[in-house]
Design a binder for these strands. Structure first.
Lengths: 360, 360
DNA sequence: TTGTATGCGTTATCAC
DNA sequence: GTGATAACGCATACAA
């Protein structure tokens, strides 16, 4: 009844290590050794038989069983707050590449901006016994993460820290990046800068960027203010922006808008276009952190984050901790929390180049 | 030596079902029963003890072990060719939501446009014994997918079919969508439409869209041509576009550019901006399939794909096959391949609204 | 150099 | 109602 057109066992279940052993006329141990690269302790002849059997049966070791036995399944959890944000996708690319290089498999969880999803996914990751987690979340709290740490599962934070919780974290060097951008604006002759940021919530980077903005503006002796824009209800903030623009125009001030990230920048740009028409760029200068794909098209100045490297570093941090945990006992993985702050790169485009001589 | 500050077993390994059984003063079987909702056959008293023990130990069943025993681990593979393409992210959202609702866990694999990665990831999915796969790939061939089908693992294709391989597939209704868009252009008075598409390669949807374009243009008696643009080497195609635009201008023809998807549209838009300046939209009309986030900002007409539903349907297809496979024997999952073609929605923006009276 | 036996955490089969 | 016990597929200590 078995049709053997293809080299594998028809439409039945996959071959197991036992099947291979039988086909190769040997024991499971030798197969296991072959799989784990203990190639030196195998007679060339047996080795060939094993290779043949594996090929014939199209055998693939079952990672689940393997993980169960070894205690580690090479799975690492990657929790992303919002894949809609190009930042996340880019970080992800770095994470994937690094994981691949290290033989790890990222289990990607996309919370789609739902705080409740974050919690559920984190719990789920726990049931799959991931060896570590990389977290870029919106509302995760310390206690949730403690579960991992206490269980000996390393946690690496991306882009934001979590209050009351110390671990490795990697992200943009916000102070430097914001200072760079702000200084650029002032240098270009803008004497009134409006920083636009989402409600801080639990997101430390938002707060950090805003603080850096105020510091820099103060140090430069320029005029600056902050407007908080909630993407779920942007009207009030947009009205505030309009008002500010109107007043500044009356005072002959040159104002620049500085968005704290790409989603905010897009929302603001859409509003400006709607309000001032297609040539809104002639009327108001907009820049942002995050160099999204449309920035070039819109000719908008940005600060490009080293997203790929951020992802890569996050995995490296994780990997180092995993290694440590292996060498010493499970309790010996103690190691001070590290922080990796990568520099942003200013990408100057037409939106912030001086167009009008001051006072005109 | 054990510090019991937190309710769980210090920094050691996670609690197992045996631990819970011991803590509850019962056998593993009862715990298992409790976990699997066989709640009716448990005395209320025992039930409470179990609940308490689980809470106290912060016990989480190990999915790996569970999968090993049951033969199914609720994992489904999701292979994505390019997360950089917003289309993919949107489809993913649908997939995730549907999976979550059905108790499935998507294992997301991002091939980053590397055909070789696709192959590797597909093999990897096999080792994790996913119960099914949803594939949106660039270069996977029939043989690779056969491995899954023959192994009794359902495959659902998204957006594109694979030559010589029959399975469920879900995507945009390309003929209708392209016809809708093309007719719109002609209605708006464009008498020369250029369709721009990436090299067909193994991507069936590209071919389908181009064919639909030619059919529609022919049926409408309008002038149309196709330019193939390779994102990795766009110069020739862009030059061809320039030439076409020049010639058409000389002949007083109104030409519209129709990009087959968002990445192409972006590349073309960038070129046009570079060539014609910030008011390039005044000179040439551009539309595209895929309603990317910058389309609104650029005022570009698009065909919006029902991405979320595409993802959802894909999971539903998969789920139905999984159920079938359970009821009847593993061989009884036979079921004709289905195709779900969802309609696109025309989003008209300023880019294609008549600006010049013909012949001016 | 090779094979046997045991256990990883869970579910399923069968007794009680 | 409840609880031993045998698998699931694999790795490993140990024996041969």
């Amino acid at each position: 009844m078995q049709e053997e057109q293809h080299p594998m066992t028809s439409a039945a279940r996959r071959a197991t290590i036992t099947d291979v052993a039988r086909a190769a006329g040997t024991g499971k141990t030798s197969i296991s050794r072959y799989l784990n690269g203990e190639t030196s302790v195998l007679s060339p002849e047996l080795r060939e038989r094993i290779e043949a059997a594996i090929a014939k049966l199209d055998y693939r070791p079952n990672q689940m069983a393997r993980g169960l036995k070894r205690g580690r399944n090479r799975l690492v959890g990657m929790l992303l707050a919002d894949l809609t944000n190009p930042y996340s996708v880019e970080v992800l690319q770095g994470v994937e590449a690094a994981c691949h290089a290290l033989g790890l498999m990222p289990l990607i969880c996309h919370a789609a901006n739902e705080v409740d999803m974050e919690r559920r996914y984190l719990q789920l990751l726990t049931t799959y016994r991931v060896e570590g987690v990389i977290v870029n979340a919106l509302g995760v709290k310390e206690e949730l993460l403690q579960t991992f740490s206490l269980g000996g599962i390393p946690v690496v934070l991306v882009d934001r820290s979590v209050e009351g919780f110390v671990t490795d974290m990697v992200g943009l060097d916000n102070p430097k990046a914001v200072a760079l951008a702000t200084r650029h604006l002032v240098d270009e002759g803008f004497d009134d800068v409006v920083f636009i940021v989402q409600p801080f919530k639990r997101v430390s980077s938002r707060r950090a960027r805003e603080a850096a903005f105020r510091d820099t503006i103060g140090a430069l002796g320029a005029t600056g203010s902050t407007i908080v824009l909630d993407l779920a209800d942007a009207a009030p903030a947009l009205a505030a922006i309009d008002a500010h623009l109107r007043d500044a125009g009356a005072n002959l001030q040159r104002v620049a808008l500085f968005a704290a990230n790409a989603p905010v920048a897009l929302r603001v740009a859409l509003h400006l276009k709607e309000r001032y028409g297609v040539d809104w760029q002639q009327r108001v200068a907009l820049m942002s952190i995050d160099d999204s794909e449309w920035a070039e098209l819109a000719g908008m100045t940005t600060v490009r984050q080293p997203t790929y490297d951020i992802g890569r570093r996050a995995v490296e941090f994780l990997h180092e901790r995993l290694e440590r945990g292996l060498e010493r006992g499970p309790e010996g993985a103690r190691m001070p929390a590290r922080e990796c702050l990568l520099p942003g790169e200013l990408v100057v485009r037409s939106s912030t180049r001086r167009k009008l001589s001051p006072g005109t």
